[in-house]
Amino acid sequence: MKIIRLLILLLFFSSCNDKKTNEGLKTVQKADDNTIEVAHKTDLEVYDFDGFQKFLQKKDNKVYVINFWATWCAPCVKELPYFEKLNEEYKNKNVEVLLVSLDFPHLYDSKLKPFIRDKKIKSKVVALNDVDANTWIPKVDENWSGSIPATVIYKNDTNKFFEQSFTYESLETEVKQFLN
């Protein structure tokens, strides 16, 4: 019985955790308004799709995990810590995470940069600013309908596309398949 109780407790806590992440986001967004000045100090690489495409075409035996996200996308923000953890734990195993922000350009300074700084994001972040999504979305993957979060994992010529949210475990499982 004890174990069952523990289990219920565990489930309860894990669902609480979800809420926490969301609330955390709200706090950050609120704080953003006051941090615009400091934000300018954060550098941000911004690309159109032609410029960005090189990140999808590296052939250096490394596993690249390319995550499309935005600060306004709650499910994206929720899974960011998993990508951060992956980057931290697998950087010595030839894995690199790239976070591709689709935030609106006029919010780079007021939202995106403060977010990167406040959350202490360690993975490389670039911004993709290309309005003609109908042209570039199919170039990332034919099956992408355009919703985010979306993730590409690739190594040389092998790649896999996911239009979904990840847990750390499910993300790690997918990456491991590229390592074997």
Binding site: C73, P75, A133, I137, G146, S147
Partner: peptide, 8 residues
């Protein structure tokens, strides 16, 4: 056509 959007 395709476009970026917010997940439902």
């Amino acid at each position: 056509t395709k476009a970026i959007g917010c997940t439902i």
